[in-house]
Design a protein around this nucleic acid. Structure first.
Lengths: 151, 151
DNA sequence: GGTTATCCTACCTTCCCGGTAGGAATGCTT
DNA sequence: AAGCATTCCTACCGGGAAGGTAGGATAACC
């Protein structure tokens, strides 16, 4: 298992929101009950989604959460990144904008060339990120479930 | 970080073996020292590789490990699977040859259709497995390091 | 004002990762 | 045969994170 339940649960919440009519916010309690997940735990996850500006929140009675954008405009890469953090298969590949972190293999001044395993992990990372970016929330909700209001 | 150091270290060991002349086994202690990794820990990992029949072992003096097959015939998918176990991004996708495990969303008799998030995770899994299967150990070792004996 | 909900912080518990330890088995070498 | 090098096996352990709980503060609606 490579992703934690943060991603698993969080994606479900997003899918649930996408499946609902977005005209009014959905209370997290309703989602928790429908999905059979602990409310208190979902609260943590949805906060991440909110800070990433993927959902809007309304407090108070009849409050809840709603997608900040149409489902088709929210890539799964954004969702997973918000929940799980940076997408990197191994520490070797962990983001270093400044390139400070090199595989321990590269410490020796690069005489032996770059870490031979780096190629593998960058490719794996690339393929994961690419497939996540190719999908949006709207790809998760079957047509029948989508609001057919405007039909 | 999605893969543990088991995969990271184990792949390094395999890459090291692939880079060495395979005519005689390499002691794990030498690899541990060269890669700067704890020997006692590598022993665990290399046992997994051995049980998966990816490496051959020879005990006693001048013993060690060697690839069981030419590097080009060992896919990285095999290596990672041996080290990390089944490749599944989330529990939802965890292998059930018999299909017994369904997402909790699918418990309700499937009235609401299959778990909407399943599509996402199966695609992610597919892309990971595919890229791992496309690469072999020989892709990790630069030409210069490869034995140019038979040239 | 009371109710409904989000928001925030702190805590707790269980699991597994990364690593250690110690020895038994095996095979060279002398 | 003795000794050494190395794999093999089992057990153990400490720390950290994941998964989850608790309690209250804040905000909006009625």
């Amino acid at each position: 298992m490579m992703f934690s339940t943060k991603a698993e649960y969080g994606v479900r919440v997003m899918a649930h929101l996408a499946a609902c009519d977005g005209s009014q916010p959905v209370a997290l309690g309703a989602i928790a009950e429908a999905e059979g997940l602990p409310l208190a735990y979902l609260e943590h996850l949805v906060q991440r989604l909110r800070r990433a500006e993927l959902v809007d929140s309304r407090r108070g009675a009849h409050g809840g959460y709603s997608l900040s954008r149409p489902a088709g405009a929210i890539s799964m890469a954004e969702v997973v990144a918000a929940l799980e953090g940076e997408i990197a298969p191994v520490e070797c590949i962990s983001a270093d904008p400044d390139g400070s972190l090199v595989c321990s293999r590269e410490r020796d001044g690069g005489a032996s060339g770059p870490c031979p395993t780096k190629l593998l992990w960058t490719r794996v990372q690339g393929s994961i990120v690419r497939t996540l970016e190719e999908m949006t929330l709207s790809d998760l909700i079957p047509e029948t479930t989508t609001k057919r209001v405007s039909v």
